[in-house]
Nucleic acid binder design. Structure first.
Lengths: 152, 152
DNA sequence: GCTTGACCTCAAGTAAACTTGAGGAATTAT
DNA sequence: ATAATTCCTCAAGTTTACTTGAGGTCAAGC
């Protein structure tokens, strides 16, 4: 049983074309440790095809507001030495699902609050759901109590 | 029927404390046209209490990845001359709901895809849902065809 | 009435996520 | 073999969303 040799023959330009991101972005992602490439004899990058999947994950995650740092963290569960297999993806998946579910909850809450504001007319500050500081959305990075309107 | 005079007597520091954002951020938001303040005789900012709601909306929206530019656009539906009333909120709400729903769909799709990758084991590139370029997630700002893996 | 703290403006700095450009080497096309 | 591409590195510029700081004013307490 001979081992299948991974073909690593895509240039940056090729990957850029296939993935839709700029060459400069590929350089940047590599510098940041998000993707990897080997080099040919002339020091030019050569990519394995799995780089496309990594880029897809990066772009999909970014679109929903996940930072490159977080994405890198998640991608670190995937090996660089071999193409990701089932359990690799399972690890990544597990890590992200909870986070994604939370983000979905946040968004849904915001939508519901905004929808709710139609009903309340936002004429009463105290009744406005956007004013409720006791939910997840109200707790920003600052950890501050948003919208204390007790002396209205 | 005498008109109720709006009290505008909160200082930046007061608003900062109540909203949990820095004074510098309030200045910044004002400069960007996201919030407004009147001035007292000594040129110091004085806020109406509705500024807290605007800040709440800003922060909630940011949390889910909406840019200040988009937020400003949405907030522009609210008047600055009077406290937002039912129909003001209704306009804002309508504008945002569709967008929020789309974002929720995107997130859910990403979650499902990632979850799906467990099932497919991502051993087959063509079967991997992350590779499907024909969905919303696959179409990035670039509009490029992500992940053309036809020559795998 | 004077000091202390809050406020003012304006300029510059910061971090994230890239892009642009200069100067030069490798690859591909003819 | 040579020209046209593509690629390389490294430095600097860009945008978004703020923060920090300098130099000076305003207001509140004693």
């Amino acid at each position: 049983m001979r081992k299948k040799i991974r073909s690593a023959n895509w240039s940056v330009g090729e990957v850029a074309k296939r993935s839709g991101v700029n060459v400069s972005t590929l350089h940047f992602y590599e510098e940041k440790g998000l993707i990897h490439a080997s080099r040919n004899s002339g020091n030019q990058r050569r990519y394995f095809k799995d780089v496309l999947r990594r880029i897809a994950v990066i772009k999909a995650a970014q679109k929903v507001g996940i930072s490159l740092t977080e994405i890198k963290q998640a991608l670190s569960f995937l090996p660089t030495s071999h193409a990701p297999n089932k359990s690799d993806w399972e690890r990544l998946s597990k890590q992200w699902r909870a986070d994604l579910e939370q983000r979905i909850k946040d968004l849904t809450a915001l939508k519901d609050k905004i929808t709710g504001c139609i009903g309340c007319g936002c004429l009463s500050l105290k009744a406005c759901p956007l004013y409720n500081p006791n939910d997840h959305l109200g707790q920003q990075q600052s950890g501050a109590v948003l919208l204390n309107s007790s002396d209205e």
